[in-house]
Protein backbone atom coordinates (compact mmCIF):
# COMPACT_ATOMS: atom_id res chain seq x y z
CA UNK A 1 0.00 0.00 0.00
CA UNK A 2 1.33 3.42 -0.90
CA UNK A 3 -0.11 6.81 -0.09
CA UNK A 4 0.40 9.65 -2.56
CA UNK A 5 -0.74 13.24 -2.31
CA UNK A 6 -3.12 14.32 -5.08
CA UNK A 7 -1.93 17.09 -7.36
CA UNK A 8 -5.27 18.84 -7.42
CA UNK A 9 -8.47 18.54 -5.42
CA UNK A 10 -11.68 19.12 -7.33
CA UNK A 11 -14.55 20.95 -5.68
CA UNK A 12 -16.82 18.00 -6.43
CA UNK A 13 -14.63 15.70 -4.34
CA UNK A 14 -14.68 18.14 -1.44
CA UNK A 15 -18.47 18.10 -1.63
CA UNK A 16 -18.75 14.34 -1.92
CA UNK A 17 -16.44 13.60 1.03
CA UNK A 18 -18.90 14.40 3.85
CA UNK A 19 -21.68 12.57 1.98
CA UNK A 20 -19.47 9.46 1.78
CA UNK A 21 -18.93 9.71 5.52
CA UNK A 22 -22.64 10.03 6.19
CA UNK A 23 -23.30 7.04 3.91
CA UNK A 24 -20.79 4.92 5.82
CA UNK A 25 -22.36 5.91 9.12
CA UNK A 26 -25.79 4.96 7.78
CA UNK A 27 -24.46 1.56 6.69
CA UNK A 28 -23.02 0.85 10.15
CA UNK A 29 -26.23 2.05 11.77
CA UNK A 30 -28.25 -0.26 9.49
CA UNK A 31 -26.02 -3.18 10.44
CA UNK A 32 -26.72 -2.46 14.12
CA UNK A 33 -30.46 -2.34 13.41
CA UNK A 34 -30.29 -5.73 11.69
CA UNK A 35 -28.29 -7.16 14.60
CA UNK A 36 -30.92 -5.85 17.02
CA UNK A 37 -33.61 -7.63 15.00
CA UNK A 38 -35.24 -4.62 13.36
CA UNK A 39 -35.70 -3.83 9.71
CA UNK A 40 -33.22 -1.10 8.68
CA UNK A 41 -35.63 0.48 6.19
CA UNK A 42 -38.32 0.72 8.86
CA UNK A 43 -35.73 2.09 11.28
CA UNK A 44 -34.62 4.81 8.88
CA UNK A 45 -38.17 5.76 7.96
CA UNK A 46 -39.00 6.10 11.67
CA UNK A 47 -35.85 8.11 12.28
CA UNK A 48 -36.41 10.56 9.43
CA UNK A 49 -40.10 11.00 10.17
CA UNK A 50 -39.34 11.35 13.89
CA UNK A 51 -36.93 14.18 13.16
CA UNK A 52 -38.50 15.93 10.16
CA UNK A 53 -41.97 14.45 9.69
CA UNK A 54 -44.13 17.07 11.38
CA UNK A 55 -44.03 20.67 12.48
CA UNK A 56 -43.39 19.54 16.04
CA UNK A 57 -40.65 17.08 15.04
CA UNK A 58 -38.94 19.72 12.93
CA UNK A 59 -39.09 22.25 15.75
CA UNK A 60 -37.55 19.71 18.13
CA UNK A 61 -34.72 19.11 15.67
CA UNK A 62 -34.03 22.84 15.34
CA UNK A 63 -34.15 23.21 19.12
CA UNK A 64 -31.59 20.42 19.44
CA UNK A 65 -29.41 21.96 16.72
CA UNK A 66 -29.17 25.27 18.63
CA UNK A 67 -26.57 24.24 21.25
CA UNK A 68 -24.87 21.98 18.70
CA UNK A 69 -24.23 24.94 16.37
CA UNK A 70 -22.64 26.88 19.22
CA UNK A 71 -20.49 24.05 20.60
CA UNK A 72 -19.61 23.13 17.01
CA UNK A 73 -18.44 26.71 16.37
CA UNK A 74 -16.44 26.58 19.61
CA UNK A 75 -14.60 23.46 18.44
CA UNK A 76 -14.18 24.75 14.88
CA UNK A 77 -12.58 28.03 15.98
CA UNK A 78 -10.23 26.34 18.44
CA UNK A 79 -9.22 23.49 16.13
CA UNK A 80 -8.53 26.01 13.36
CA UNK A 81 -5.81 27.43 15.61
CA UNK A 82 -4.71 23.89 16.59
CA UNK A 83 -5.89 24.61 20.12
CA UNK A 84 -7.39 21.25 21.10
CA UNK A 85 -10.27 22.42 23.23
CA UNK A 86 -12.05 19.23 24.34
CA UNK A 87 -13.56 21.10 27.28
CA UNK A 88 -16.73 22.22 25.52
CA UNK A 89 -18.83 20.28 28.00
CA UNK A 90 -17.32 22.09 30.98
CA UNK A 91 -17.59 25.48 29.28
CA UNK A 92 -21.22 24.73 28.41
CA UNK A 93 -22.00 24.15 32.09
CA UNK A 94 -19.95 27.20 33.09
CA UNK A 95 -22.17 29.33 30.86
CA UNK A 96 -25.26 27.83 32.44
CA UNK A 97 -23.88 28.38 35.95
CA UNK A 98 -23.11 32.04 35.30
CA UNK A 99 -26.53 32.55 33.71
CA UNK A 100 -28.21 30.92 36.72
CA UNK A 101 -26.17 33.02 39.12
CA UNK A 102 -27.05 36.33 37.43
CA UNK A 103 -30.42 35.34 36.04
CA UNK A 104 -32.21 34.22 39.19
CA UNK A 105 -32.79 37.56 40.79
CA UNK A 106 -29.86 39.82 41.69
CA UNK A 107 -30.57 42.21 38.80
CA UNK A 108 -33.92 43.30 37.42
CA UNK A 109 -33.82 44.30 33.79
CA UNK A 110 -36.18 44.22 30.84
CA UNK A 111 -35.70 41.17 28.57
CA UNK A 112 -33.97 43.08 25.76
CA UNK A 113 -31.16 43.95 28.21
CA UNK A 114 -31.28 40.83 30.38
CA UNK A 115 -30.79 38.33 27.54
CA UNK A 116 -27.70 39.94 25.96
CA UNK A 117 -26.32 40.52 29.45
CA UNK A 118 -26.63 36.85 30.38
CA UNK A 119 -25.12 35.71 27.07
CA UNK A 120 -22.16 38.05 27.48
CA UNK A 121 -21.58 37.15 31.11
CA UNK A 122 -21.92 33.44 30.39
CA UNK A 123 -19.50 33.70 27.48
CA UNK A 124 -16.97 35.39 29.74
CA UNK A 125 -17.32 32.55 32.23
CA UNK A 126 -16.67 29.95 29.56
CA UNK A 127 -13.78 31.91 28.08
CA UNK A 128 -12.12 32.30 31.45
CA UNK A 129 -12.53 28.58 32.13
CA UNK A 130 -10.62 27.76 28.94
CA UNK A 131 -8.04 30.42 29.77
CA UNK A 132 -6.45 28.26 32.48
CA UNK A 133 -5.51 25.29 30.24
CA UNK A 134 -4.55 27.72 27.47
CA UNK A 135 -2.13 29.62 29.67
CA UNK A 136 -0.71 26.30 30.88
CA UNK A 137 -0.19 25.43 27.22
CA UNK A 138 1.41 28.70 26.13
CA UNK A 139 3.50 29.22 29.29
CA UNK A 140 4.42 25.70 30.41
CA UNK A 141 3.73 23.55 27.36
CA UNK A 142 1.17 21.44 29.28
CA UNK A 143 -0.93 19.46 26.79
CA UNK A 144 -4.36 21.11 26.68
CA UNK A 145 -6.22 17.98 25.55
CA UNK A 146 -5.90 16.30 28.93
CA UNK A 147 -6.33 19.45 31.02
CA UNK A 148 -9.52 20.52 29.21
CA UNK A 149 -10.91 16.98 29.48
CA UNK A 150 -10.16 16.83 33.20
CA UNK A 151 -11.71 20.25 33.77
CA UNK A 152 -15.00 18.89 32.37
CA UNK A 153 -15.20 16.47 35.29
CA UNK A 154 -14.30 19.19 37.79
CA UNK A 155 -16.94 21.61 36.47
CA UNK A 156 -19.65 18.93 36.40
CA UNK A 157 -18.89 17.99 40.02
CA UNK A 158 -19.05 21.70 40.87
CA UNK A 159 -22.52 21.88 39.28
CA UNK A 160 -23.44 18.72 41.15
CA UNK A 161 -22.51 20.45 44.41
CA UNK A 162 -24.46 23.58 43.46
CA UNK A 163 -27.71 21.79 42.63
CA UNK A 164 -27.53 19.41 45.59
CA UNK A 165 -26.23 22.07 47.97
CA UNK A 166 -26.38 25.85 48.13
CA UNK A 167 -28.43 26.41 44.97
CA UNK A 168 -30.93 23.61 45.52
CA UNK A 169 -34.41 24.91 44.86
CA UNK A 170 -36.61 24.27 47.91
CA UNK A 171 -39.67 24.49 45.65
CA UNK A 172 -38.51 21.63 43.42
CA UNK A 173 -39.99 18.74 45.47
CA UNK A 174 -36.53 17.51 46.38
CA UNK A 175 -35.21 17.28 42.83
CA UNK A 176 -31.60 18.40 42.47
CA UNK A 177 -32.11 21.57 40.49
CA UNK A 178 -31.43 25.27 40.95
CA UNK A 179 -34.13 27.91 41.15
CA UNK A 180 -35.56 28.92 37.76
CA UNK A 181 -34.27 32.05 36.05
CA UNK A 182 -36.56 35.09 36.12
CA UNK A 183 -39.11 35.48 33.34
CA UNK A 184 -37.18 38.37 31.79
CA UNK A 185 -34.25 35.99 31.19
CA UNK A 186 -36.28 33.40 29.29
CA UNK A 187 -35.70 33.30 25.55
CA UNK A 188 -39.00 33.93 23.76
CA UNK A 189 -40.61 31.17 21.74
CA UNK A 190 -40.53 31.67 18.01
CA UNK A 191 -43.06 29.04 17.01
CA UNK A 192 -46.38 28.42 18.78
CA UNK A 193 -46.77 25.23 20.84
CA UNK A 194 -43.15 24.19 20.31
CA UNK A 195 -39.94 24.57 22.26
CA UNK A 196 -38.12 26.38 19.45
CA UNK A 197 -36.72 29.58 20.93
CA UNK A 198 -34.82 32.71 19.98
CA UNK A 199 -31.56 30.91 20.75
CA UNK A 200 -31.68 29.22 17.36
CA UNK A 201 -31.42 32.57 15.61
CA UNK A 202 -28.75 33.74 18.03
CA UNK A 203 -26.79 30.61 17.07
CA UNK A 204 -27.26 31.29 13.34
CA UNK A 205 -26.15 34.87 13.90
CA UNK A 206 -23.04 33.61 15.71
CA UNK A 207 -22.24 31.25 12.81
CA UNK A 208 -22.36 34.10 10.31
CA UNK A 209 -20.45 36.34 12.70
CA UNK A 210 -17.68 33.78 13.23
CA UNK A 211 -17.50 33.16 9.47
CA UNK A 212 -17.07 36.88 8.83
CA UNK A 213 -14.58 37.21 11.71
CA UNK A 214 -12.39 34.34 10.51
CA UNK A 215 -12.52 35.50 6.89
CA UNK A 216 -12.41 39.25 6.95
CA UNK A 217 -10.59 40.42 10.08
CA UNK A 218 -6.93 40.53 11.01
CA UNK A 219 -7.57 38.62 14.22
CA UNK A 220 -9.35 35.90 12.30
CA UNK A 221 -6.52 35.70 9.81
CA UNK A 222 -4.03 35.41 12.67
CA UNK A 223 -6.00 32.51 14.15
CA UNK A 224 -5.87 30.65 10.84
CA UNK A 225 -2.20 31.47 10.34
CA UNK A 226 -1.19 30.27 13.81
CA UNK A 227 -3.10 27.06 13.20
CA UNK A 228 -1.46 26.49 9.83
CA UNK A 229 2.06 27.15 11.08
CA UNK A 230 2.94 28.66 14.47
CA UNK A 231 6.59 29.04 13.46
CA UNK A 232 5.85 30.89 10.25
CA UNK A 233 3.38 33.12 12.13
CA UNK A 234 5.96 33.93 14.79
CA UNK A 235 8.49 34.68 12.06
CA UNK A 236 5.99 37.02 10.42
CA UNK A 237 5.77 38.89 13.72
CA UNK A 238 2.44 37.59 15.02
CA UNK A 239 2.08 37.31 18.81
CA UNK A 240 1.40 33.55 18.77
CA UNK A 241 0.65 33.21 22.50
CA UNK A 242 -1.73 36.18 22.44
CA UNK A 243 -3.51 34.79 19.39
CA UNK A 244 -3.94 31.45 21.14
CA UNK A 245 -5.39 33.20 24.21
CA UNK A 246 -7.82 35.18 22.03
CA UNK A 247 -8.88 31.96 20.30
CA UNK A 248 -9.47 30.38 23.69
CA UNK A 249 -11.67 33.25 24.88
CA UNK A 250 -13.73 33.05 21.69
CA UNK A 251 -14.01 29.27 21.71
CA UNK A 252 -14.83 28.99 25.42
CA UNK A 253 -17.30 31.83 25.06
CA UNK A 254 -19.17 30.15 22.20
CA UNK A 255 -19.46 26.86 24.09
CA UNK A 256 -20.72 28.73 27.15
CA UNK A 257 -23.33 30.54 25.04
CA UNK A 258 -24.72 27.11 24.18
CA UNK A 259 -25.19 26.56 27.91
CA UNK A 260 -26.95 29.91 28.34
CA UNK A 261 -29.21 29.22 25.34
CA UNK A 262 -30.16 25.78 26.61
CA UNK A 263 -30.78 27.10 30.13
CA UNK A 264 -32.79 30.19 29.17
CA UNK A 265 -34.40 28.68 26.10
CA UNK A 266 -35.38 25.13 26.99
CA UNK A 267 -35.03 24.15 30.66
CA UNK A 268 -35.35 27.40 32.56
CA UNK A 269 -33.34 26.04 35.50
CA UNK A 270 -29.95 24.42 36.07
CA UNK A 271 -29.87 20.62 36.36
CA UNK A 272 -27.25 17.94 35.87
CA UNK A 273 -28.91 16.66 32.69
CA UNK A 274 -28.89 20.02 30.94
CA UNK A 275 -26.45 18.61 28.40
CA UNK A 276 -26.51 15.11 26.92
CA UNK A 277 -22.89 15.65 25.83
CA UNK A 278 -23.30 18.78 23.68
CA UNK A 279 -19.65 19.67 24.25
CA UNK A 280 -18.45 16.36 22.84
CA UNK A 281 -20.96 16.29 19.96
CA UNK A 282 -19.71 19.77 19.07
CA UNK A 283 -16.39 18.20 18.11
CA UNK A 284 -18.16 15.86 15.68
CA UNK A 285 -20.16 18.79 14.30
CA UNK A 286 -17.00 20.82 13.71
CA UNK A 287 -15.14 17.95 12.05
CA UNK A 288 -18.10 17.08 9.79
CA UNK A 289 -18.11 20.72 8.68
CA UNK A 290 -14.36 20.61 7.97
CA UNK A 291 -14.10 23.44 10.56
CA UNK A 292 -16.04 25.83 8.33
CA UNK A 293 -18.32 28.13 10.42
CA UNK A 294 -21.22 28.04 7.95
CA UNK A 295 -20.78 24.30 7.39
CA UNK A 296 -21.20 23.93 11.17
CA UNK A 297 -24.87 24.94 10.80
CA UNK A 298 -25.50 22.16 8.27
CA UNK A 299 -23.65 19.51 10.23
CA UNK A 300 -25.32 20.55 13.51
CA UNK A 301 -28.70 20.09 11.81
CA UNK A 302 -27.59 16.68 10.59
CA UNK A 303 -26.42 15.55 14.05
CA UNK A 304 -29.66 16.92 15.53
CA UNK A 305 -31.69 14.88 13.01
CA UNK A 306 -29.82 11.73 14.05
CA UNK A 307 -30.26 12.42 17.77
CA UNK A 308 -33.93 13.42 17.67
CA UNK A 309 -34.71 10.73 15.07
CA UNK A 310 -33.02 8.00 17.10
CA UNK A 311 -34.87 9.07 20.24
CA UNK A 312 -38.17 8.86 18.42
CA UNK A 313 -37.27 5.54 16.76
CA UNK A 314 -36.19 4.01 20.06
CA UNK A 315 -39.59 4.83 21.49
CA UNK A 316 -41.48 3.22 18.57
CA UNK A 317 -39.41 0.05 18.18
CA UNK A 318 -37.39 -1.45 20.95
CA UNK A 319 -33.92 -0.13 20.02
CA UNK A 320 -31.67 1.64 22.49
CA UNK A 321 -31.27 5.35 21.68
CA UNK A 322 -27.51 4.94 22.14
CA UNK A 323 -27.62 4.09 18.43
CA UNK A 324 -27.52 7.88 17.86
CA UNK A 325 -24.18 8.15 19.68
CA UNK A 326 -22.78 5.20 17.73
CA UNK A 327 -23.86 6.78 14.45
CA UNK A 328 -22.32 10.17 15.25
CA UNK A 329 -19.08 8.50 16.38
CA UNK A 330 -18.90 6.52 13.11
CA UNK A 331 -19.60 9.77 11.24
CA UNK A 332 -16.62 11.41 12.93
CA UNK A 333 -14.25 8.57 12.02
CA UNK A 334 -15.65 8.26 8.50
CA UNK A 335 -15.35 11.97 7.77
CA UNK A 336 -11.70 11.87 8.81
CA UNK A 337 -11.05 9.12 6.27
CA UNK A 338 -13.15 10.84 3.60
CA UNK A 339 -11.29 14.13 3.99
CA UNK A 340 -8.02 12.23 3.87
CA UNK A 341 -9.06 10.64 0.59
CA UNK A 342 -9.70 14.04 -0.97
CA UNK A 343 -6.08 14.99 -0.32
CA UNK A 344 -4.35 11.66 -0.88
CA UNK A 345 -4.84 8.61 -3.03
CA UNK A 346 -4.05 5.08 -2.01
CA UNK A 347 -2.17 2.93 -4.51
CA UNK A 348 -2.31 -0.81 -3.97
CA UNK A 349 0.58 -2.70 -5.43
Amino acid sequence: MRIEPRESVSLAMKGIAPLMAVGTAMLVCSALLVWAGASPTQGWVLMISGALGSKFALSETLTRATPLILTGLAAAVAFRAKLWNIGGEGQFYMGAVVATWLGTGPFAMPPYLMIPYLFLAGAMGGGLLLLLPTLLKTRLQVDEVVTTLLLNFIVILFVNWLVFGPWKDPMAMGWPQAAPVVDQALLPQVLDKTRLHLGFFIALFCAVGVWWFMRATTWGFEIRAVGASPRASAFAGMPVAAVTVRTALLSGGLAAMAGVAELCGVKGYLTLDLSPGFGYSGIVVAMLAALHPLGVVASALFVAVIQIGADSMSRSINISSYIADVTTAVCLLAVLVAMFLTRYRIRWR
Binding site: Y322, V326, V337
Partner: peptide, 20 residues
Protein backbone atom coordinates in the same frame (compact mmCIF):
# COMPACT_ATOMS: atom_id res chain seq x y z
CA UNK B 1 -4.82 10.93 10.45
CA UNK B 2 -4.88 13.29 13.43
CA UNK B 3 -4.18 11.25 16.55
CA UNK B 4 -6.16 13.66 18.70
CA UNK B 5 -9.38 13.54 16.72
CA UNK B 6 -9.17 9.84 15.83
CA UNK B 7 -8.60 8.98 19.49
CA UNK B 8 -11.65 10.96 20.56
CA UNK B 9 -13.63 9.24 17.81
CA UNK B 10 -12.50 5.84 19.08
CA UNK B 11 -13.52 6.83 22.61
CA UNK B 12 -16.96 7.94 21.43
CA UNK B 13 -17.39 4.81 19.30
CA UNK B 14 -16.20 2.32 21.92
CA UNK B 15 -18.17 3.92 24.75
CA UNK B 16 -21.43 4.31 22.81
CA UNK B 17 -21.15 0.85 21.27
CA UNK B 18 -20.66 -0.64 24.75
CA UNK B 19 -23.74 1.15 26.05
CA UNK B 20 -25.77 0.16 23.00
Amino acid sequence: LSQHVTGLGITMLAASLSSF
